[in-house]
């Protein structure tokens, strides 16, 4: 069974591209465009890895991941590895993100992303 990766980004262009890439590589990918949906999804779907954009309207990537991790903990589910993608490396959120997962700078090449993913799964 292929690993399930959740891609969260408010930009449809990005989500579509990443999903295509992941599918081609052999993963199963789901795209969401906001954090709230992602939180809900995690509740009832098994996710092996999350790729999330930090800067999103509504709830940002870091908050989303924090929430998700809380839920996982609460439900005694295993932790899900997270890869954050972002334009700003130095923003406060990015710094926080580094403690929660890996941070990759946009725009990145497919190799860079895939290498990071295979580190985890």
């Amino acid at each position: 069974m292929s690993k399930n990766i959740l891609v969260i980004d408010d930009d449809g262009l990005v989500t579509k591209s990443l999903c295509d890439l992941l599918t081609k590589t052999g993963f199963s990918a789901d795209a969401l465009n906001n954090g709230f949906d992602a939180i809900d999804k995690v509740k009832d779907t098994h996710v092996d890895l999350i790729v999330v954009d930090i800067r999103m309207p509504g709830i940002d990537g870091v908050q989303t991941v924090k929430k998700i991790k809380e839920i996982l903990k609460a439900k005694n589910k295993p932790d899900i590895p997270v890869i954050f993608i972002t334009g700003y490396a130095d923003s406060q959120a990015a710094i926080e993100a580094q403690e929660l997962g890996k941070v990759i700078l946009k725009p990145f090449g497919s190799k860079e992303l895939l290498d990071s993913i295979t580190e985890y799964i």
Binding site: D11, L13, V14, S17, I85, P107, F108, G109, S110, K111
Partner: peptide, 11 residues
């Protein structure tokens, strides 16, 4: 964002 899309797709 668009750059990400271009780069990943091209690759």
């Amino acid at each position: 964002n668009p750059l990400t899309a271009i780069l990943t797709n091209v690759q």
